[in-house]
């Protein structure tokens, strides 16, 4: 039963991840005044990459990098409950908690970074460096917000955190914390203005430079699932989670669209700019939010 549940969760995350990704390309095309590709385009891309005849590898670590990254995404999906009540779609959330998930979020990128590094391509490493440097500042506001939420709920457990919001969601109870977390979340989603990691103008594709064929396909799939996990996290922490699948879809969709629109209109920050921005605005919001707690 649990196994089925887990598989279902993964399927939902995978499906919706790609759907949202397709949606993102569509929506941003509309913002640009284009039509954009079909909704399933990203899915097609990943299938095509899986069925390419060859993929280049640089050795076993290069091979394992995307696997670790995807495992990280899978774990993230499994350890965040989809719904705030009932037995189904809870995954392994009772075996972990928010702190575990916050750390699991970094496991994938690290695995990937190891793979990238083993390719020996300097552009890949430059991308990773940018990513990690940005991560310094990216996580701070999110952590502050998460700390606020945890202290407020008196537990790091997702169930309790969501229960604590049954009367008023954290977004309204702690608007500053939400604002801080939301800006961080934009960065986590890798959208503009925080998309300097893979800037093709300067560093080829950054971390993904050397990944081809099935490796790239795996990276795309995990990225779709991972995005969904991040949406879930935001929904659970600040919007009280979802009672049923429909609500979940609605809430994640709203969050996603918001992120997409913001991403479509902002220009890219450089690494230094994004760090300075993240430390200036959202971190300050988070600190004030914590002080008001």
């Amino acid at each position: 039963m649990l196994l089925l549940d887990l598989l279902l969760m993964l399927l939902i995350a995978y499906g919706f991840g790609f759907l949202y990704y397709g949606l993102y390309r569509n929506l941003s095309a509309r913002v640009h005044g284009r039509f954009g590709p079909s909704l399933a385009q990203s899915f097609s891309d990943s299938i095509k990459l899986f069925v390419k005849e060859e993929s280049t590898t640089f050795g076993w670590m290069f091979y394992l990098g995307p696997v670790i990254m995807a495992s990280g995404a899978v774990l993230n999906v499994l350890f965040i409950p989809f719904l705030n009540q009932g037995e189904s779609l809870q995954g392994l959330s009772s075996y972990g908690n928010l702190i575990v998930v916050l750390y699991l979020m970094v496991l994938g990128p690290l695995g990937n970074a190891l793979g990238v590094g083993s390719s020996g391509n300097p552009f890949g490493v430059m991308g990773v460096t940018r990513g990690l440097t940005r991560l310094l500042a990216l996580e701070l506001p999110f952590y502050l917000a998460a700390i606020g939420v945890m202290i407020d709920a008196g537990s790091a457990d997702f169930g309790i955190i969501m229960q604590a919001q049954s009367t008023q969601s954290n977004m309204f109870a702690h608007p500053l914390l939400f604002a801080a977390a939301f800006i961080s979340f934009l960065g986590f989603m890798g959208k503009s203005p925080f998309d300097v990691v893979g800037a093709p103008q300067e560093v080829y594709s950054g971390p993904a430079t050397e990944f081809s064929g099935k490796f790239l396909a795996l990276l795309m799939s995990q990225s779709a699932m991972f995005s969904f996990a991040k949406l879930l996290l935001m929904v659970n922490l600040f919007w009280g989670g979802a009672d049923h699948l429909g609500e979940l879809v609605a809430k994640t969709f709203v969050l996603f669209v918001a992120a997409t629109f913001i991403g479509s209109v902002y220009a890219r920050f450089s690494t230094v700019q994004s760090v300075e921005f993240l430390i200036r605005i959202p971190t300050l919001l988070g600190i004030v939010g914590l002080a008001l707690l």
Binding site: P200, Y204, S205, A208, E210, F211, S212
Partner: peptide, 8 residues
């Protein structure tokens, strides 16, 4: 795409 590895 930016890199030949990913290009078709």
């Amino acid at each position: 795409v930016a890199t030949p590895r990913q290009a078709d």
